[in-house]
């Protein structure tokens, strides 16, 4: 089943990239997609039931607009600090967001890195070590909106 889903995903990607719909390109595309799927679908669909993976995928799509907004905010923040309008007062914090799955941890870690004033330094076990550019950036990490959202995303399993 993972094979089929991966195949479809990659096929869609191929069609989007290719833009050619004549026989030889399609044929080549089909062969390519099948080959890649056979070779590497385990890297995409390994470790979990298929339904969960799909739900996570769609969850991620839903999550991204919010994230985008956060990113915009982050940039505004960094811009101000570059320009010296806000102070740079970094600190390192650690916390346990209570996420179980790799997927969740990775999503959260990358979200943290993308959002205002924080960079994930280390994820060891369940613990996150985060470098924050200012105390206020670090403040609402542990029980902030982001952790909640990611937990929901993960929890949809």
């Amino acid at each position: 089943m993972g094979f089929v889903v991966t195949w479809l995903l990659l096929a869609g990607l191929w069609l989007g990239l290719s833009g050619f719909f004549d026989l030889i390109h399609l044929l080549f595309g089909a062969v390519s997609v099948t080959f890649v799927t056979a070779l590497s679908h385990r890297y995409l669909t390994a470790g979990g039931p298929l339904g969960r993976g799909l739900r996570r995928l769609f969850g991620l799509l839903a999550y991204s607009p919010w994230l985008l907004w956060q990113v915009a905010l982050a940039n505004y923040d960094v811009l101000l600090r570059v320009l010296g309008i806000r102070r740079v007062d970094p600190q390192v914090v650690r916390f346990r967001p209570g996420l179980a799955s790799e997927f969740g941890k990775v999503t959260l870690a990358n979200s943290i890195t993308l959002t205002p004033g924080t960079v994930t330094v280390e994820v060891a076990g369940g613990e996150f070590i985060v470098h924050a550019i200012a105390p206020e950036a670090a403040a609402d990490l542990a029980e902030g909106a982001m952790v909640r959202r990611v937990r929901r995303l993960e929890g949809s399993a």
Partner: peptide, 29 residues
């Protein structure tokens, strides 16, 4: 040791490979 890097690397493999084949297949175009 970074979980994140490992995870992202694994997940991106099929995409990279497909892209490689796309590059191959559209070399004439």
């Amino acid at each position: 040791d970074s979980l994140i890097v490992r995870y992202i690397a694994r997940r991106s493999v099929p995409f990279i490979q497909l892209y490689a084949l796309y590059v191959l297949g559209h070399g004439e175009d």
